[in-house]
């Protein structure tokens, strides 16, 4: 009897979100099935992260980027070239009122410079202070009108400002951030759509954790979100998922301990890349439609993994 391959069919479909403008635009999402289960359109865009506060990024990246790190525009350009990434994420960490407290104007200028320097879609991340991010991402949305950037991310405390400015007034995309919980993710999506942001303008940042550091919660949350969207056709959970694993992966001891501190563990850079690849690949398998890493080698590896799996 000939072998007949059966494929599980789902009622729901993950929405498509287009990011970037003109030639640079790419689309994420759109699959009708779980990741890598048959040929129903799942693919992952890989993003490379850069920061406006390079002093935080320790020794591992100075060797990769050299002086380019000091200028965000040059940093972004180099990162895209070295990694072959599909898009770039700029972290405006300097805006943090508990840190450098850089002004909104300066940060917006950085974002604009990065956007102008690269020919890929841009994701703008704030400093994770809800109040400051509201002001910052609102101003970014205004300045970069027409560039279709992703504002990364709106949380419960600032979704109104970021949703209204980004998703509605200036036609950008809004990422909705929640802390590894299907219900919190769902609630924020509902709040944003009730505010008037269109579902196709929302991506979900459902949270992550470094592999080995409670990742099972991430895995089950992603699984449940995708099964609800595909299986139960729950339209409040059908937005594409965008996951930034860079901070988590490079923040655990395996990546933080220098070679002097843990000589038996070998190269610090390799350890960081290893953590990042392990975490990112797990998120991709879980259904991340866009994955953001820090090291160009990680980006290349994930891209080839996805290509290999899709065959």
């Amino acid at each position: 009897m000939p072998y007949k391959k059966t494929e599980q069919k789902f009622n729901g479909k993950i929405g498509v979100c287009e990011i970037g403008a003109g030639d640079a635009a790419i689309s994420i999402g759109g699959e009708k099935t779980l990741p890598f289960l048959g040929g129903e359109g799942f693919k992952t865009a890989v993003g490379i992260a850069i920061t406006d506060s390079p002093e935080d990024w320790e020794g591992c990246f100075a060797a990769v980027y050299g002086d380019d790190m000091k200028d965000p525009a040059a940093f972004a350009k180099a990162a895209v070239e070295k990694s072959g990434a599909d898009f770039v994420l700029v972290k405006l960490a300097s805006a943090d009122p508990n840190g450098a407290d850089n002004s909104v104007e300066n940060c917006v200028a950085t974002a604009a410079a990065v956007e102008a320097a690269v020919n890929v879609p841009v994701v703008i991340e704030g400093c994770k202070n809800a109040e400051k991010d509201a002001k910052l991402l609102e101003a970014v949305a205004k300045t970069l009108e027409g560039k279709n950037v992703v504002l990364f991310s709106a949380v419960e405390d600032n979704y109104k400002t970021i949703g209204a400015a980004g998703g509605m007034a200036y036609g950008q995309k809004v990422s909705a951030e929640s802390a590894v919980d299907i219900n919190l993710a769902k609630q924020l999506n509902i709040l944003l759509t009730q505010l008037g942001v269109k579902p196709q303008d929302i991506v979900m940042d459902v949270g992550s954790a470094a592999a080995g550091y409670g990742f099972e919660y991430v895995a089950s949350t992603m699984d449940r979100i995708r099964l609800a969207g595909l299986g139960q056709n729950d339209d409040s959970l059908q937005m594409p998922i965008m996951t930034d694993v860079s901070n988590d992966s490079w923040g655990v001891k395996e990546a933080v301990f220098t070679e002097a501190e843990a000589p038996e563990w070998g190269s610090q850079e390799n350890r960081g890349i290893g953590m990042e690849i392990a975490t990112a690949s797990a998120c991709v398998i879980g259904g991340s439609n866009a994955i953001i890493v820090r090291h160009p080698e990680s980006a290349k590896t994930i891209k080839s993994m996805v290509a290999g799996l899709l065959g």
């Binding site: 219900n183 769902k186 609630q187 509902i190 729950d234 409040s236």
Partner: peptide, 12 residues
């Protein structure tokens, strides 16, 4: 229970 802790419900 968690799904219902929202007005009216997270499953509209």
């Amino acid at each position: 229970f968690i799904s219902a802790c929202f007005i009216p419900h997270t499953n509209l």
